[in-house]
Amino acid sequence: MSFNVLIVDDSRSMRGVIKKIITISGFKMDQCFDAGNGKEALEALVGNWVDVIISDINMPVMNGFELLGMLKEDNLLKEIPVIVITTESSEKRMQNAFDLGAKGFIKKPFLPEEVKKILYKVIGVGDEGEYGEDNGDDEDFDF
């Protein structure tokens, strides 16, 4: 079984880095959708089911908190786990994200293995689980 992932970040570079990390980690990713803000993310979710959303907070048009609020109000979309990945890591901000339904939090700058670990945790599988393909070398991401 593979998973569909939606990456939401206004930085094209950051979307590329996150996608590369997920690919290198051995995570069984099927389709990878991306969006430049919360509004684009909601549009991407029309007609496309994703298993996990990785979203920035500080974005133009619709920020990550607003996106979390919109997902929470939708009976179907609220079931999709969201990992917040952001520079804004104050305790208040983190609590706000969790209150809005975020299941995980990654602080920028991050190490590749941090993304991998939280992704597996939120999806509910381990590194060596049924859906993960452990390359046996967690600490060695070669870019």
Partner: peptide, 25 residues
């Protein structure tokens, strides 16, 4: 721009992790 965003967020978090700051785009 992403570097500026990360540096600013990282800096403010280290300066005072209890406070929430609003960052511009």
């Amino acid at each position: 721009k992403e570097a500026a965003n990360m540096i600013c967020g990282n800096f403010l978090g280290k300066l005072d992790s209890t406070e929430a700051f609003n960052l511009s785009i």
